[in-house]
């Protein structure tokens, strides 16, 4: 019975040595220690061991001048982040499609240029002023001249040209409607002298 009591008390003596025993357990242990010398000796040796531990705790296991971990941690954090990229070009590069993206862009550019060139050629053929005969077909500079001539008319006078509104504007045609131009560049129509009245009934000259 005494041994059981001593065992129960000795199981709690380490907590008593660290001042961590409370309440009923504390009172029971202290009552036992009054009459048990071996348990008192056990408590004393535990107190010595804890003193040694606390002395060792005061001695730091690492040097006080050790450098901080932050510089290497900061570098690790920086390396873990992906580099900043322009959003427009981020996704193809991320997918490794940048070469394909560049090739596709070059193809689109070539197609656009081709369509543009064809459109200019189509625009020349559809010009109402040069459609009459093949004989009217002249080299490029002459075609520009051919498409321009229109008599001087009031701006509100209706144009007699077949389809002036549908005329394609290309590099070889004037951007200004021919009805507004008052003289002929091929010199087949005399230059106006400036004394003509603005006769709205006058019919425009057609070619």
């Amino acid at each position: 019975m005494g041994n059981l009591q001593c065992k129960w008390v000795r199981d709690r003596l380490p907590l008593l040595a660290g001042n961590e025993l409370r309440g009923a357990d504390l009172r029971r242990v202290e009552r036992h220690l009054i009459g048990c010398a071996p348990c008192r000796e056990h408590r004393s040796s535990l107190g010595q061991a804890l003193k040694v531990l606390h002395l060792a705790a005061a001695y730091p296991p690492v040097s006080a001048e050790a450098p901080s971990l932050w510089p290497s941690l900061a570098q690790q954090i920086r390396h873990s982040r992906p580099p900043a990229q322009a959003p427009l070009f981020a996704w193809p590069r991320r997918l490794g499609l940048w070469p394909a993206y560049s090739f596709a862009g070059a193809c689109l550019l070539a197609i656009a240029v081709t369509v543009g060139l064809r459109g200019q050629g189509t625009g020349k053929q559809s010009d109402p002023h040069s459609l009459n005969t093949a004989a009217n077909h002249k080299p490029a500079p002459a075609e520009v001249v051919k498409q321009v001539p229109e008599p001087v008319v009031a701006s509100h006078e209706p144009s007699e040209s077949p389809e002036p509104a549908s005329e394609a504007i290309t590099a070889f045609t004037e951007s200004v409607p021919s009805a507004r131009i008052g003289y002929d560049l091929d010199h087949t129509i005399p230059m106006p002298s400036g004394r003509e009245s603005r006769d709205t009934t006058r019919q425009p000259t057609t070619y």
Binding site: R10, R12, P14, L15, G18, S45, L46, Q48, A49
Partner: peptide
Amino acid sequence: LAKARDAFREHW
């Protein structure tokens, strides 16, 4: 903790 302290004491 109690067991650890007792073991340390015994080794010491």
